[in-house]
């Protein structure tokens, strides 16, 4: 009986802790977003974060999308050949990339690259008193550090996903025409005819949501880090893990909202 009570108590503590954390992150997000409503706006920090996400992440996201499109075309072909449906490769590639893989893969790469960087940078500022120094210099650390990063990542990730979509489809096209005997015109026609605006738009909306989560968790984990180098390391890991989980969970919810019948 005691063991059962201990287990229930542990479960209760876990649930309370989770609720507390979710509440704290929600308040943190609300404070950060309120910074968008009134000045000062730290345009330089916004521009720096935007460039970091939209421009300097292009190679890693582009390559990932390209190889994903290539692998997808190959997998679809070998799988569909069992049902004599090889002709659907282009359709599968474009739908998978624009609706799912483009946004999710780009967001996961950004979580590893940008979310981790935000956590490490802000975490280091926290443990070296730089955040306190901002306050003593009459600058709100939330508005200076967090609001611009969240705004920039939320706006930049859809642009990055648009590029990822194009390169992912291009990867499928390369394999389709170079290895699988599709004609270039036939592959492109199949791609364009099958694609609907909603497929792309839904992916871009997902990207904005994923971008928000990546930046939010990166900033939150960094801002609340404690305990020197070890704390910053833990914050960085936590940022990547939590934002990856949020990306995958919210992807399901958004897919349900957009496409469930």
């Amino acid at each position: 009986m005691d063991r059962l009570l201990d287990a229930v108590a542990a479960l209760g503590r876990l649930s309370l802790g989770l609720c507390r954390s979710v509440g704290a992150v929600a308040v943190f997000a609300a404070v950060a977003l309120s910074g968008l409503l009134r000045p000062p706006f730290h345009a330089r920090n916004f521009a720096r974060a935007f460039a970091e996400v939209a421009y300097f992440s292009l190679p890693v996201v582009g390559l990932t999308a390209l190889f994903t499109g290539m692998a997808l075309a190959l997998q679809s072909y070998t799988g569909f050949a069992r049902f004599n449906a090889e002709g659907a490769v282009a359709n599968v590639v474009v739908l998978s990339i624009t609706r799912e893989l483009g946004p999710v893969i780009a967001a996961l790469m950004i979580a590893g690259r940008i979310g981790a960087a935000f956590a490490a940078e802000i975490g280091t500022m926290r443990v070296t008193d730089q955040i306190d120094a901002l306050s003593t210099l009459s600058t709100d650390p939330m508005r200076y550090l967090v609001t611009p990063r969240i705004a920039a990542t939320t706006l930049a990730l859809p642009l990055l996903v648009l590029v990822a979509d194009i390169l992912g489809v291009a990867g499928g096209f390369l394999i389709g025409t170079g290895k699988l005997d599709f004609t270039a015109a036939g592959y492109l026609r199949a791609t364009v005819d099958f694609l609907q605006a909603m497929d792309v738009v839904s992916g871009l909306v997902k990207a904005a949501v994923f971008g928000f989560f990546v930046a939010l968790m990166g900033c939150w984990c960094g801002y609340t880090s404690r305990g020197g180098a070890e704390g910053v390391g833990a914050a960085t890991t936590q940022a990547v893990v939590s934002s990856s989980i949020l990306i995958l969970a919210s992807n399901y919810v958004l897919t349900e909202l957009f496409f469930a019948r």
Binding site: E121, T124, M125, T128, D129, Q130, D132, A133, T136, S138
Partner: peptide, 17 residues
């Protein structure tokens, strides 16, 4: 009131970036 204060931190706390 606090705007008219200054602070020198123990480790300097200069902004690395």
């Amino acid at each position: 009131v606090l705007d008219r204060t200054g602070m020198l931190f123990q480790n300097g706390a200069l902004f690395d970036s």
